[in-house]
Simulated assay, not measured.
Amino acid sequence: MPRTRPRRSLAGTLALATLLALAACGTPDDEPVATAGDRPGSTVINTSPEQNRVRGTKVDAVAAKVPAAIAADGKLSVGISAGQTPPLFFRADDDRTLIGVEPDIAQLVADVLGLELDLRPTSWDNIFLAVRSGQNEVGFSNITVTEERKDLYDFATYRVDSLGWEVRVDGGIDRIEKPADIAGLNVSVGSGTNQEEVLLRWDEQNRAAGLAPVKITYYQNSADYQLALLSGRIDAFFGPNPSVAYHAAVSGRTKVVGIVPGGGEVPAQIAAMTQKGNGFVEALDAALDAVIQDGTYARVLARWGLGGEAIPAAEINPPGLPRS
């Protein structure tokens, strides 16, 4: 696509909104502190292990919905990604404590159910295997509802799924809204993700229209793609909007130039995932509704700058992304 001089546009508005949302979360004792960073436009978030998480309260009527086999040990075993993807899930400064919006939501649900939270960091693939086998009772890891996944798992939703395009502030790209905007670019994306499916679909549309193909570059972790982006080895990164917005906010050297639904043109939702037919999804749904209604859910999203991804009520097994 033609390159133009950077100008204040949608990206500037999004970055500013993210910074303000994060900074506004630093007042109450149970919110992380956000301050100005060492680069213009950057901010610093509390990443210490002393998070003072927002906590929920046990609701007996909801706790009674938990199947006896799950409630027996008094714990909620949660599969969650071991990757470093702030603000979704990442290690605190002690390099041990898992923090982020996903652990925080899992904590609220465990509290409402009267269970002790047992976070079990693991690889992305193993989250699904462990939940399917019953080794872990639920997955909280920015998991998108898809029709294929619904064959094997039950879902209770808690957040809108949105994807973001991240570019360098000085990279000359101001807006990515449609497939033609990425023609000829070198783009990085996570392998095996729904954003990869969107990217491949957009590239296929470009090729069919006679536009330059996209070069797709894969990296094993977020630090690698961020270095490649800042050094100019890639033009853009396409990933979960929470993580790209966070990185843009704290670095001050990148910006978000487009946000699309989790399915590209198709809306999608993030959900808690449990074994199909084990009877647990009703309790998860009720617990999520309880924290939405009492306001603790909104406080958790706000403390990580994700208020824009809130939903008004949880839903069991909604329409998911279509089968590939």
Rank of each mutant, 00 (worst) to 15 (best):
G239E: 13
R132F: 12
D118R: 12
A64Q: 07
K178I: 09
L211E: 11
I143F: 09
W124D: 10
K255P: 09
G164F: 09
A64V: 02
G305A: 03
D161H: 11
G37M: 01
L19C: 09
I143K: 08
L16W: 12
A248R: 01
A271I: 03
D289T: 10
S48P: 03
V260W: 10
V66N: 05
V300N: 05
A106T: 11
A287T: 04
N142M: 12
F89W: 07
K75T: 13
S123E: 05
L200V: 08
I70H: 04
A314K: 05
L199I: 07
A271E: 06
V59S: 06
G190S: 13
E309D: 11
V189R: 06
G139C: 03
D224W: 10
I173R: 13
R91W: 08
V138Y: 02
L230P: 00
D203A: 09
E196W: 03
G232C: 00
E147G: 02
I270M: 12
T47W: 09
P213D: 04
S231T: 10
E204W: 01
S222V: 11
D294P: 07
V266D: 12
R120P: 00
T47L: 09
R7A: 11
S141W: 04
W124V: 14
R132I: 00
V291F: 02
G232E: 00
A61C: 01
D154R: 01
T47A: 14
N194Q: 07
I127H: 03
L129C: 00
P267E: 06
R233W: 00
R303Q: 14
I216C: 04
A61Q: 10
R159H: 11
T254F: 02
K58L: 13
Y153H: 13
V109Q: 03
E315R: 15
R253F: 02
R299C: 01
A63P: 04
G56F: 07
G308T: 03
P40Q: 02
K58R: 15
D203N: 15
G12Q: 01
G12K: 00
D60T: 13
S191E: 14
V250E: 08
S324Q: 14
Y225I: 04
F237V: 15
Y219T: 04
A23G: 14
D125H: 08
G100Q: 07
R253Q: 15
I311D: 07
Q269Y: 14
D294T: 04
N221F: 06
R7P: 00
G279V: 10
G252E: 07
S48V: 00
K276G: 07
N278G: 09
V131P: 08
V266H: 13
R323M: 10
T13N: 06
G263P: 08
L113P: 01
A69C: 00
P319S: 10
R168P: 02
T57F: 02
T47H: 13
V112N: 05
N241P: 00
D181K: 12
R159C: 12
A130M: 11
G295H: 03
G164D: 11
G320Y: 06
G139N: 05
I216N: 03
A268L: 08
G79M: 05
